[in-house]
Write a protein that binds this DNA or RNA. Sequence first.
DNA 1: GTCTATACACGGATAGAC
DNA 2: GTCTATCCGTGTATAGAC
Lengths: 191, 191
Amino acid sequence: MSTSERLIESTRELLWERGYVGTSPKAILERAGAGQGSMYHHFKGKPDLALAAIRRTAQELRATAEQVLSGPGTPYERIEAYLLRERDVLRGCPVGRLTMDPDVIANKDLRAPVDETIAAIHGRIAELVEEGKRLGQFAPGLDGEEIGAAVLATVQGGYVLARASGSPAAFDAGVRGLLSLLAPRTPGQER
Amino acid sequence: MSTSERLIESTRELLWERGYVGTSPKAILERAGAGQGSMYHHFKGKPDLALAAIRRTAQELRATAEQVLSGPGTPYERIEAYLLRERDVLRGCPVGRLTMDPDVIANKDLRAPVDETIAAIHGRIAELVEEGKRLGQFAPGLDGEEIGAAVLATVQGGYVLARASGSPAAFDAGVRGLLSLLAPRTPGQER
DNA sequence: GTCTATACACGGATAGAC
DNA sequence: GTCTATCCGTGTATAGAC
């Protein structure tokens, strides 16, 4: 792997573990096994390197999510698959955690990939909900955008609950709670 | 206000704005209008001062939440009141945001107030859901703990969505989505 | 109790040798 | 392209005067 690749990958790891403010160039260089010179040759500085790392992480997450949401099954099943997808819960969301980083939020360029990724997944879920309504799987009174936001929020908030308690259980509980509310009514099933 | 009070209050503000890693003693001192000596006289160091600040913030949030959840109205109405309660959405949750701080999570003492606060509110909502089930307001298949986790996660995740997009709208959308799923079925109302 | 002085490692970046 | 040297401000803490 090239030096600049190693720098980006190390930065991605550290941003996930410690956030932007908590990540120093020095720590990145040590993890990448590179010297100062390499970093400032390939990148303009910490924000520039972070931008490359964030873009890649955001892109990757988005692709994974969209793949699950466009997979097989009914709208409900796809949303369920998205919610139940395997996650490193205690590590948190590599994209969502950046929203708590003041320096990321303050920088338009750094925030953009975060915003776009979340918006894209949100939009995809909203579409699925609308499709589910047409199929009669979801109640017609539901709003796709709103349910999409609730689904995404449950995931992002689930990470918070899990990290607060030190256990992934809270994440799973929230997801199950949401799914129990969202579950399509099938004939003869009363909830 | 005493110097030690000003130190705690300044720390609370900064922890909310910039998190633990992003907050330096120097910044705290400047905001509090105090010198180095004062801080190290009243507190053992940054973690000790942060602990005092976090405890107070957690306590305050918990009291506010429990007040709303124990207020007037049916279980659904109280949960609704909690979800719709006025919030400084773009600033994020002063307690929840700490879960994304690696140094807070790594320190048992610092994490404890965060964990306890979230657990307490979670428990309170779970009770309300169970009560709502007894009253026939919620479907008997729902699980109090799970719905409680979903409610809390929607709030915590709502902050993430709002900060990502730079607008409180996403928070509100998620809340409305959850409420539309949770709304008790009243006679003649089909959703 | 509060202040100033001092300490030293780290954060973030530049310069220039190889 | 990569390395080392160097820079200056900041982060965190201690010492000691008032």
